[in-house]
Design a protein around this nucleic acid. Structure first.
Length: 491
RNA sequence: CGGGGUGUAGCGCAGCCCGGUAGCGCGCUUCGUUCGGGACGAAGAGGUCGGAGGUUCGAGUCCUCUCACCCCGACCA
């Protein structure tokens, strides 16, 4: 087979870019830092959206939509929040263009300057909390459980397809609660939703934890996160859920009268996942032959490739293939019958391989004669012959098996790449030789975390929720520590 | 914003040092033979060489300016 992919070994980031391009997921656009998500890549995102959207609704949330523009003054109302986002905001200053008097084409009409400049949302807390003020008077108005699917803009210096682009698609949930406890429960619930989604649908095991102060969302009291491990041993933050306390309620003066008749500030959460998850999916499962997709999210779960020598065989094979397709479709399986006469079977085999289609059916004259099909699975690259009568069962079973196998492989990989370090030397050796997650003691100070980051580029990915307290000494400072935290180099 | 690099056909590149008819591979079009893992042959189409100015009889090539993009750093889901 012609290899036109870089391998992970040779050049991991080139391998990643090759997959994005060859699998037809996305391409660079005319706008620096922004990408065009192509139909196949978007279909993948739509599948993710569909599953998440249902999970959000099943937990009582409703969708709404807030403006892309945020008045500049809103931003400065929450001090930490501005500080966190100020450096990467796109700003709208004018609202009109005109023909240049000197004939240099279209220019900004300087007379059309906005009274108040508008920020293109990097996230929507401010505009949403400014709106919630009017929605909330009484404890009877609470909770508010709203999600929005939207695009946001963060003016990044260095961008990478899906992982970090100037504009990206995401969902952001914004909830308002009468009590601190209720808000914390919501924050954790949504973290669990994300972890469930990652593990059951994306087939990626994730670590749940909280962020250190340095890594916390600007304006949050606590940031919960799920962290996934990529095949190059680097960590990827796959989702975050924030307990915002009363910070935004105070900044935007959102108060309610409690049952007891007291005026109190509302408690808030926000939570989000983005198209970055597509990047996570690519890097978690794909191999040197291209993309590998978990069946539950794959835009096409089964591709049928007819094989024939002439028009007569083409008709005969396609007729049979269409019947098989209908049978599978009736079971809710996403099937594509590729009856294009413009490409050869071998070409199609390769195409579906690098596009990560979980199962491929080849159907030819021999199969027509024997009532068989050839089934090839993308994850193991195994091919087997089955009776057509068994096809639906086999396909259903194999799709499940592939989903499980991908998860198990990713889990085994993560386990093999998870280490404990008890000294600074050991920490550095593991980081440079093996990568992965490193459980190590930390004295809990931002200074130490920063120094470790400066010296090694490793950051605290999370303080794991499920770890037990354990006395020890900080690997960097030697000061006492109460529990291990997870370090890694990250995307 | 610092440091490095690249702009030549849809894509990937050679040509530049040493100025003299704009090339190669892939892709594309047509025809024929093929079709169970990226087919082969033949014939075609496709370019203001990133832009502006200069040197020269002559510039893709030399000089000056300019623009764009990519990579490495600082920042980040």
């Amino acid at each position: 087979m012609a290899k036109d992919f870089s391998t992970r070994e040779e050049n991991y980031s080139k391998w990643y870019n090759d997959i994005v391009q060859k699998a037809d997921l996305a391409e660079n656009s005319a706008v620096r830092g922004c990408m065009v998500i192509k139909p196949y890549g978007y279909a993948l995102w739509e599948n993710m959206q569909a599953v998440l959207d249902k999970m959000f609704k099943d937990t009582g949330h409703s969708n709404a939509y807030f403006p892309i523009f945020i008045p500049k003054s809103f931003f400065s109302k929450e001090a930490d929040h501005v500080e966190g986002f100020a450096k990467e905001c796109a700003v709208v200053t004018h609202y009109r263009l005109k023909n240049d008097a000197d004939g240099n084409g279209i220019v900004v009409d300087e007379t059309a300057k906005l009274e108040e400049e508008l920020i293109i949302r990097p996230t929507s807390e401010t505009i949403i909390w400014d709106t919630y003020r009017n929605w909330i008077q009484s404890y009877r108005d609470l909770p508010i459980l709203v999600n929005q699917w939207a695009n946001v803009v963060r003016w990044e210096m260095r961008t990478r397809m899906f992982l970090r682009t100037a504009e990206f698609l995401w969902q952001e949930g914004h909830t308002a609660h009468a009590t601190k406890e209720e808000a914390i429960i919501e924050t954790k619930q949504m973290l669990d939703v994300y972890a469930d989604f990652a593990e059951k649908f994306m087939a990626i095991p994730v670590l749940k934890g909280t962020k250190s102060e340095n890594e916390r969302f600007a304006g949050a009291l606590e940031t919960y996160c799920i962290e996934a491990l990529m095949q190059d041993g680097k960590a990827l933050q796959a989702g975050t859920s924030h307990f915002l306390g009363q910070n935004f309620a105070k900044a935007f003066d959102v108060k309610f009268t409690s049952k007891e008749g007291k005026l109190e500030h509302v408690w808030a959460t926000s939570w989000g996942v983005s198209t970055r998850l597509v990047g996570a999916l690519i890097m978690a499962h794909s191999d040197d032959n291209g993309l590998v997709l978990p069946p539950r999210l794959a835009p096409v779960q089964v591709a049928i490739v007819p094989i024939y020598k002439n028009k007569e065989q083409y008709n005969q094979v396609c007729e049979k293939a269409a019947k098989l397709k209908d049978m599978l479709q009736e079971k809710g399986i996403r099937v594509k019958l590729d009856d294009r006469d413009t490409h050869k079977p071998g070409w199609k085999f390769n195409e579906y391989e690098f596009k990560g289609v979980p199962l491929r059916i080849a159907l030819g004259p021999r199969d027509i004669e024997n009532n068989t099909v050839e089934l090839a699975r993308r994850d193991t690259l195994e091919k087997s012959i089955y009776q057509q009568a068994d096809l639906v069962n086999k396909v259903e079973h194999l799709l499940e098996a592939i989903q499980d196998n991908l998860y198990q492989k990713a889990l085994t990989f993560r386990e093999e790449k998870t280490f404990k370090a008890d000294s600074w030397d050991e920490f550095n050796t593991i980081l440079d030789d093996k990568g992965g997650f490193i459980y190590a003691h930390w004295d809990g100070t931002a200074e130490t975390e920063q120094k470790i980051k400066d010296e090694t580029k490793a950051t605290i990915r999370c303080i794991p929720l499920e770890s037990k307290p354990e006395a020890g000494t900080c690997i960097y400072s030697g000061n006492p520590s109460k529990q291990r935290v997870v370090f890694a180099r990250a995307y």
